[in-house]
């Protein structure tokens, strides 16, 4: 990915103070970059910190959260910027769509008003112009009869249509970065397919960068160019989607793929669950956060897994994994991954 990233996240940390003085480390040194026209999938389980990281990028975390590291948009640091400047970026150059299409819309305003407000907040213009733009946007996201739909209230629309309205709001100001945070999770598969198609076509048209946050590897597999696998607040493996999902090297990515049932492909085999539970961000294990559940972990005296946090190792161009037992590209091109 030679192009200059539009958005670069480095060493992002998000901690929440917890009662009793302990800090909850929701995001623990996360690196990420996305270039224009590129789609990066961010996959992880509940509590992995992927949503907290996106909220930190948008500057939407509650005040008590402490955010560290660096978030650069077009080379300019966003962290620590005054709220007023962030507000100008949010919904403008940086847009985000959330999971719940029900609660992300104001129930007492028509969808047209809500889209028009997003337009006027960033571009000004008259109410009439903004309304016309809202109709255009609704048409562009595939809402049937947009001229009447603008005057509907959110509860009159189906979940899929509401998610389209949210996407219309998000792309109203031609964002350069579009973040979709589990944006299709609440939708049925056939509707999800519609929405994913929509996102792809918007990207093809506008060339924006897309961050696709999902727990569903299938959603990411279809849409992303690159994938970052997040575990306990860090990226444990990232690289081109074919490499990461086709030939994973990190034990967590491999385990995650092994425990997924398949809808259509491959034989029906017994699944291999991952032992234990995802770690609580309030009590992250020492060393590699995956080591208590890792089948290949070597702990105790001489074993690095519970002693040191593994640094990312490049196993192929653009493909990195943070595991003590991953061989660097020069020695073993295929990256046999974990030791037995």
């Amino acid at each position: 990915m030679g192009a200059e990233p539009v958005l670069a996240v480095e060493g992002l940390r998000v901690t929440f103070p917890a009662p009793g003085g302990a800090a909850v480390r929701a995001v623990d040194g996360l690196d990420l970059a996305v270039a224009a026209g590129e789609t990066v999938g961010i996959v992880g389980e509940s509590g992995s910190g992927k949503s907290a990281a996106m909220l930190a990028v948008m500057g939407l975390l509650p005040g008590r959260a402490r955010v560290g590291g660096s978030v650069r948009f077009r080379g300019e640091e966003l962290l620590g910027r005054p709220e007023k400047e962030l507000r100008r970026l949010r919904g403008g150059k940086l847009a985000m769509v959330f999971q719940d299409p029900g609660s992300s819309l104001n129930p007492v305003l028509t969808v047209g008003r809500q889209i028009a407000e997003a337009v006027r907040a960033h571009q000004g213009g008259s109410r009439g112009d903004a309304r016309r733009r809202a109709v255009e946007l609704l048409a562009a996201v595939g809402v049937p009869s947009p001229a009447t739909a603008v005057d509907r209230h959110p509860h009159e629309l189906s979940g899929g249509m509401r998610q389209r309205v949210l996407i219309a709001t998000a792309v109203a100001n031609d964002p350069e970065v579009l973040i979709l945070d589990e944006a299709t999770t609440a939708l049925d598969v056939t509707v999800q397919a519609q929405v994913l198609e929509l996102v792809a076509s918007i990207q093809a048209r506008t060339g924006c960068a897309v961050l696709l946050v999902s727990h569903d590897l299938g959603v990411v597999a279809g849409l992303a160019d690159r994938v970052a696998v997040v575990y306990a607040g860090r990226v444990v493996e990232h690289g081109p989607v074919d490499d990461v999902l086709g030939a994973p090297v990190h034990p967590y990515t491999r385990a995650l793929l092994d425990c997924l049932p398949r809808a259509t492909a491959g034989p029906r085999v017994r699944l291999t669950p991952i032992a234990g539970q995802p770690p609580s961000p309030a009590a992250l294990p020492a060393g590699c956060p995956f080591h208590p559940r890792c089948p290949a972990a070597v702990t105790g005296p001489g074993g690095p897994c519970d002693a040191r946090v593994p640094a990312p190792v490049a196993v192929a161009p653009g493909h990195e994994a943070a595991c003590h037992f991953v061989a660097p590209a020069s020695r073993d091109r295929r990256g046999a991954g974990a030791a037995p």
């Binding site: 509940s46 910190g49 949503s51």
Partner: peptide, 16 residues
């Protein structure tokens, strides 16, 4: 399914 940053999923065995 979302990892809401505020709600901490308790890992019972690990956290006394």
């Amino acid at each position: 399914m979302v990892d809401a940053p505020v709600e901490v999923v308790p890992a019972p065995a690990a956290v006394g």
